[in-house]
């Protein structure tokens, strides 16, 4: 996953910095355990589109897998470990 940003590209922020209704693309994750594999398998794969349904604890995101997708609730710690590129 790229961490490089250019002047035009949106700045990479933590998922916890987004507010309700904001959409973003998942950029990278900062995990020291096997949470990453689990979240990817649940649908939070690199570059997936997210919409924040609820900010705070828990942080609820709708993951857009092309269409349909799924809704995932994350504890604040997990959400803070995910970096996203807001739209």
């Amino acid at each position: 996953m790229t961490t490089q940003t250019t002047a035009q590209a949106p700045a990479r922020v933590r998922l916890t910095q987004l507010t309700r209704g904001q959409t973003a693309r998942l950029d990278s994750a900062d995990f020291k355990d096997d949470s990453a594999a689990h979240l990817t398998a649940m649908g939070l794969r690199p570059s997936c589109q997210l919409r924040v349904c609820k900010a705070g604890q828990p942080c609820i995101v709708h993951v857009d897998g092309h269409a349909g997708g799924c809704r995932i609730a994350l504890s604040r710690d997990l959400a803070a470990s995910l970096y996203v590129l807001p739209h």
């Binding site: 355990d33 949470s35 689990h38 979240l39 649940m42 649908g43 828990p58 609820i60 799924c70 809704r71 995932i72 609730a73 994350l74 504890s75 710690d77 997990l78």
Partner: peptide, 12 residues
């Protein structure tokens, strides 16, 4: 052991 941080799929 470290408790896994909660991540749950919210069913419809």
């Amino acid at each position: 052991g470290k408790s896994p941080a909660m991540a749950l799929e919210l069913p419809r």
